[in-house]
Write a protein that binds this DNA or RNA. Sequence first.
DNA 1: TTGTAAGCGTTATCAT
DNA 2: ATGATAACGCTTACAA
Lengths: 362, 362
Amino acid sequence: MYTQTRTEIIGKATLRAMITIRELAKASGFSPTTISLVMNKSPAGQHIPAKTKESIRNWARKLGYYPNQFARSLRSSRSGSIAVIVPDVSDPYCAQVLLGVDKALYRSAYLPLLVDIQNSRARFRKYISTLFERRIEGVIAVANSLQLQTEMLDIFANNRIPVAAIGRESSDARINSVSVDNEAGARLAISHLFELGHRRIAFIRGPKAVIDSAHRWLGIVEFAKEVSLPLDSALITQLKDTASSSEGGFEAMMRLLRGGTPFSAVMAFDDMTAFGAIQALTQAGLKVPEQCSVVGFDDIAAAAHFNPPLTTIGQSMEELGKIGVSIFLQAREAQHGRGPGVRPIHRMVEPVLAVRASTARV
Amino acid sequence: MYTQTRTEIIGKATLRAMITIRELAKASGFSPTTISLVMNKSPAGQHIPAKTKESIRNWARKLGYYPNQFARSLRSSRSGSIAVIVPDVSDPYCAQVLLGVDKALYRSAYLPLLVDIQNSRARFRKYISTLFERRIEGVIAVANSLQLQTEMLDIFANNRIPVAAIGRESSDARINSVSVDNEAGARLAISHLFELGHRRIAFIRGPKAVIDSAHRWLGIVEFAKEVSLPLDSALITQLKDTASSSEGGFEAMMRLLRGGTPFSAVMAFDDMTAFGAIQALTQAGLKVPEQCSVVGFDDIAAAAHFNPPLTTIGQSMEELGKIGVSIFLQAREAQHGRGPGVRPIHRMVEPVLAVRASTARV
DNA sequence: TTGTAAGCGTTATCAT
DNA sequence: ATGATAACGCTTACAA
């Protein structure tokens, strides 16, 4: 094959191995301009005969011509890349969001640059220059965890790069966001338990610093008031760590059990917490859901496969990701259109109750 | 701030917003050459006075100068990007490998371009041109699943782009690979059960088309022969789908239970399969591990959080990822050094037995 | 020690 | 309908 012969040159050869538009021009007999017009389906080239177009495309395929994106970006001032920042790729929540982002971006002209900051501020900072050097046109950040605070995203907004924060409402007005309606989700969860006849319900609240915790708690308090359900402070505990984890859930449940106040159901901050809580219950000889119902939040992939399959509040992370992309595209459109008059976009997705086998009638 | 003022221009402004080396030259009073030498710490610039260097770096920081990577790549013929291809980002196995890849790549000069082919050949094909256009210098592919066959990676090898396949040995000699020692892993699993006193062991084998299945089975057969353990064909079943899943495990276990042949332990193809099997056992009223021990393979994150926590064979996906990167770096080094005489690299990681609560003495 | 100028591959503008 | 030419921002001989 042609390209293979050319790669015999060693050293810096890697990129040179590809054929250039001028070489393609020479080989095909057309000029670089014509080729460019054809390859990009430019409006300016609409009067080029179909025969010519056909011929050029054939030559391109035959010689393996792939236009150099760097030259293109340099000329056009468009990088076609967008940063997707996640606190931790191996976290199932992030993974699901990523899936949605990817699906949505796939149809667009943008390529995602995945930045996994692994819960480290230092890593985040080190990536910033890389992203600027690559001239990213936007940022989509999964900001559900503590580690990726929206303030950190200010640097992008300062440089007029549109930012979409996923999973947490931003305090900065210039930062767009999508998140689940935490309050509504919490209501769904507690009302599910309430309808099953549970009256003595325990709560494992999320870390204080996570804004979602507060919103979810608000939903609980309001629902409780409406149906006159008393909230016993002996049945309320809080995750200690900054991040949620199965271990945290385990410990929280141990505290509740040691407390001695009886309860027939638990509402956990999220699924990981619920997993830990169920393990603690099982270990204490209590069967779920027969002796204690458990409900989680998030509906991560593992929830459905857990033993027992977990009843939880789904928030379609995939949807969050897709909306994140659409927000970016919209923001970018607005930026191009009128410049300054861009309003921040905030959207919420509706939570859904996924009833599985970890909850039962009293 | 300077950069902000400049961005008032609308339209194509996004990339223009950044300052160029010439503007920095004008502002600082030094020439582009000097600046380039300083910013890149070029050997040629070793005699530039510290004072000048200092001054240039200060100006750069003050004006927010980030060298344009496109211009740089165009000039230097080095893209600094490498494709990381995964069958499915939301799969926990992939996620863990990705973590390792990312950690290893972070210290290198390369930026990963994540390609999630979502188990679709069509998506894969569509990405190929994007990757060539961006002039990737290498490919790291998680090839554990059926969906990403090593043959698909040939197109890169054909273009002299080093490829490292993770999770599956490649048949093509030009494709480097790292995988777990499946045979040794299977031995670990069965000998663990054997030592716990199990003699009637059931097996849920992996899909036929997955090469790992065969390797694991080989380990089983050899071990059985050594200790004269009879393998009862009534206790051997196989996943039907092309991919492994919790559902597949559930069905396989139902088949085994319906078969009526008694057994005290099951070895599942992988963790997801084990999850499904445990659910089936639980549903049938059998307690794990009291009435039936279960062992998985992979040690995905959820295994430790499962109920009961799953005994399984760990294969440090993170390690696989890191090795994948080191193989790429090595391959690239070799390519630069001597050109043709590059030997394919194949490495294996040792599996480890993670004993948790899903297995017990008979 | 620092500056000048050419060229990387593409595309937009202007000619033909 | 197609072609010549300049410019995008950077690096690197080579010149001063």
